[in-house]
Every structure is written in structure tokens, then in C-alpha cells.
Design a binder for these strands. Structure first.
Lengths: 130, 130
DNA sequence: TCGATATTAGTAACTGTTACTGATTTTATT
DNA sequence: AATAAAATCAGTAACAGTTACTAATATCGA
């Protein structure tokens, strides 16, 4: 089943590229719908899944039970604000060595890890002070 | 709303203590049901959530979209097999320093992190060889 | 033992997601 | 450009995990 061009898929991907806040499928849907009024929610889900499967975007599961999506597929980590729920990119040194630490006393094979950090984001912290 | 004793809650907690495989709510339900035949699924969910809220058990989200539960509330890490989906405890050195690494260039406050590792577990690896 | 209230069983509703349908687009071939 | 095979679509129904509702029951201090 060779991949065929689809305008909808293109619009979804382009929209994701404009966002740095890791929107959910529903956010993608409502936004794309403004430029493409009769796109279907199913189409959004199908293409987000497809794009993630072929590695053009990244699917994020940050513990709120809702999938978030990221057009930035380079390896990086995320911070989740426990106050407002926003998902923010972190610029930090590599911590890939934790795989070695975890592998030490383990008889299986560890190929990767999922890490995200949580706490209070800068904006929410400011609001708390006022 | 003071907490009242509930036999169901006790049974759920005791069952969880006997398991090291981090069962889902549904697994808890079907197992507890053998000793307590007319317990309700809602009761299981409600008590698992309550117990997690008061810190007597831990809720795990390991990326499969289903909540897992753990009677071991001490800080430790988990491995998820991409083959069979099993969730296994890891005995490993602390990696709490990754919070410091992540905090370096971040203007919010990081209070914790969620990390789990994935790959092929020992059992599945053996099966692959045969 | 009584009364206030937390908890329950059972079930309906909700939410994010996936699957199904017949119609529409894409794309390779003429 | 016309055709045909197949991927994709819109729309909607179904699904899974979870939560909320309700009247009945259990707990526990007075």
C-alpha cells in the first residue's frame, strides 16, 4: 500500500510545524478545520498516527491520558506543568547514560527510555506570586 | 469527608500487595471478584484512585494508554517490554540528578520526573532465539 | 441503638480513539 | 486527456477505559 499524496495530511503536518506547544488531536482538528472546514476528525487521527508511524512527527504521552503531537522529531525532553498542563520543550544535556545505569542489573535488553519532567512552569509560578 | 473503613478497599489493597506485575484496574477487578464475587468495577476504579490519591499505592502510566497500579510506593523505575507488554521493576542506582540537568536552562520549577525504560524482556528475548 | 455520612453495586454516560462505509482523489498507464 | 486500481476521504458508528449517577447498604461516633 504505497503512500499517496493527500492534501489533508499536508495541512495537518504544516499546522503541526507552526506549533511549539505539542497540541492534541482535537486541537489539531479544530485548528485545521478553520482552513479546511469539512475535514473529519477521523482523518486527523488517521494521519497523525500515520505520520507518527513513518517518523515524520512524534507522539507524546505525558501522563494526562491524551496523546500530544510534536513536529520536532529530534530527540529532546519535555516538561509538563502540573498547574496548567502545558507541555514545554527542555533544552538540556543528554541523559542517555541512564540506559546504561538501568541495564546493569537487568537481564533483558533496554533499547530506549521515556522521560518527562513535571513541576510548575515559569508563567504559573509568576501568577502564584501575585 | 472522613475516610471510613471499607472491606472492598481492603481486599483491593491486599490483592495488589501480592502482585509484582503492576496489574491494570481490570485485572484487579477480575481477580478480586473471585474472592468477592459481587464487587463492582466502579468500586475498583474508585478505590484504586482513592488509594493512589492518599499515597498508599502508585498509579503507573507506561504509555500503553491503560493505567497500571503498584502497591510498592517506594521510588523505583519500570521496564516495559515492547513484545509482551509486561511491566517489570528495575533495581538500579538513583538517577535523580537528571532533574538538576533538566533544571539548568529552565525558568520554571521542576519537582519530579517520570521515567520508564523499554526494550525486550529476558523471557521474550529467549523465545526469539528458539 | 440511632443517625449522619461514607461507601457500595449496578448501570448509564463520557472521552479519546479506532473501525467501517460508500464516495472521492490520487496516480500510474494508456 | 481518459481509464482504472487503490489510497484516502467524510461521516458516523463502535469501542475501551474510565467516571458519574442513584438508591440501597455499611460504618462509626454519639
Amino acid at each position: 500500500m504505497a503512500l499517496k499524496y493527500s492534501r489533508q495530511r499536508e495541512v495537518i503536518k504544516e499546522f503541526l510545524k507552526t506549533r511549539k506547544d505539542h497540541p492534541t488531536a482535537d486541537v489539531v482538528y479544530t485548528n485545521v478545520r478553520e482552513q479546511y472546514p469539512n475535514i473529519s476528525l477521523g482523518t486527523v487521527y488517521r494521519n497523525l498516527t500515520l505520520l507518527a508511524d513513518i517518523g515524520e512527527i512524534q507522539r507524546l504521552r505525558v501522563g494526562d491520558g491524551i496523546d500530544h503531537f510534536d513536529a520536532d522529531v529530534s530527540p529532546h525532553y519535555h516538561f509538563v506543568c502540573t498547574e496548567c498542563g502545558s507541555v514545554i520543550d527542555l533544552e538540556m544535556d543528554s541523559i542517555d547514560n541512564i540506559i546504561d545505569i538501568a541495564s546493569k542489573n537487568f537481564d533483558g535488553m533496554i533499547t530506549g527510555h521515556v522521560t518527562h519532567f513535571y513541576g510548575i512552569c515559569g508563567d504559573c509560578h509568576k501568577k502564584t506570586l501575585s
